Simulated scan of single mutants.
Amino acid sequence: MSKFLALIPAAGSGSRMGNDVPKQYLPLSGKPMIYHTINTLCRNPSIADVLIVLAPRDSEWDKYDWSEFSGKLRVFKCGGDTRAASVLNGLTAAQHALGISPEDWILVHDAARPCLSRSQLDKLIDELADDAVGGLLAVPVADTLKRSNQENRVACTEPREHLWQAQTPQMFRYGLLAQALQNAANTQITDDASAVEAIGLRPKLVASDSYNFKVTYPNDLALAELILQQRNSQ
């Protein structure tokens, strides 16, 4: 049977947060932000291993105790200059270390989406486990979208019908994802699904919700804190 493995690319600096510490290590509910992402993935019984891809000179990871996840956690200091390069480098390193099959599923998830819930993760796995391509969590766009000109004035209003906001995890089989990322090595893709689309396939959109947002700016941390506090109190 195919295995399910999660991969977290965590080699970035998160410069938009305006902090010297890489974004994934900023404190959130008494833990580094990446802890909450790892916790959700490691505690899912379907996931066999959680692969962490760090920058080669990462100096923060070893400051924390990760022993509670030792049964599933695999760390690779092979991050690249881009997110796509980090994912591909991590896949290659993990294949050598763990003997991943081309048919095994890889769930790529952002370190900066700490509010992924157990139910969202279960839904993604359940809906895609038998899918021929794979897919991603996403949310239908609700806001009116404006395209600007060079002077930051409205050039036009974009129709939002059939538009979705992509989230993670994005789930594809190892062989397919590795091939897609290799083919996209010299292009400006922003997520794994874009690489899969570029080879002519159509990933499935699995409806999620706005709680699974990406922490990008300082104010996002406060919102993530509230969500996690509320969830932990239930």
Rank of each mutant, 00 (worst) to 15 (best):
S70E: 03
A142D: 13
L136Q: 13
A48N: 10
I34D: 07
G80F: 04
H109Q: 06
M17W: 05
R173G: 06
P22M: 11
A166I: 14
S148L: 14
D65T: 00
A222D: 10
A224V: 04
Q95C: 06
A138P: 12
A94M: 05
P56T: 05
A184G: 06
A6G: 06
L226R: 15
S194C: 06
L177Y: 11
D209H: 13
L223T: 11
L201R: 11
L121R: 00
R83K: 14
P102N: 06
M17N: 07
S46Y: 03
A129F: 06
A97H: 01
F69K: 07
Y217E: 05
N149F: 08
M17P: 04
L7Q: 09
Q229H: 15
Q95K: 09
A184R: 05
L228T: 06
T37C: 14
A6R: 08
G14W: 03
A184C: 11
A207H: 08
H162W: 05
T92R: 10
Q167L: 15
K146D: 07
S29N: 15
Q95L: 03
D81Y: 13
L51P: 00
F213G: 05
P56N: 03
Y25D: 09
T40S: 14
L5W: 06
R173I: 08
L91E: 05
N39Y: 05
A48W: 00
Q179E: 14
A193E: 02
M171C: 14
L226E: 14
A185R: 01
L54E: 04
Q95D: 08
E60A: 12
L128S: 05
H36V: 01
Q179M: 13
Y25A: 15
S86P: 01
M17C: 07
L177G: 05
A111P: 12
E225V: 07
S210N: 10
L116H: 07
A178G: 09
R57M: 10
L26Q: 11
Q120G: 07
G80P: 01
G18C: 04
R231I: 00
I227M: 10
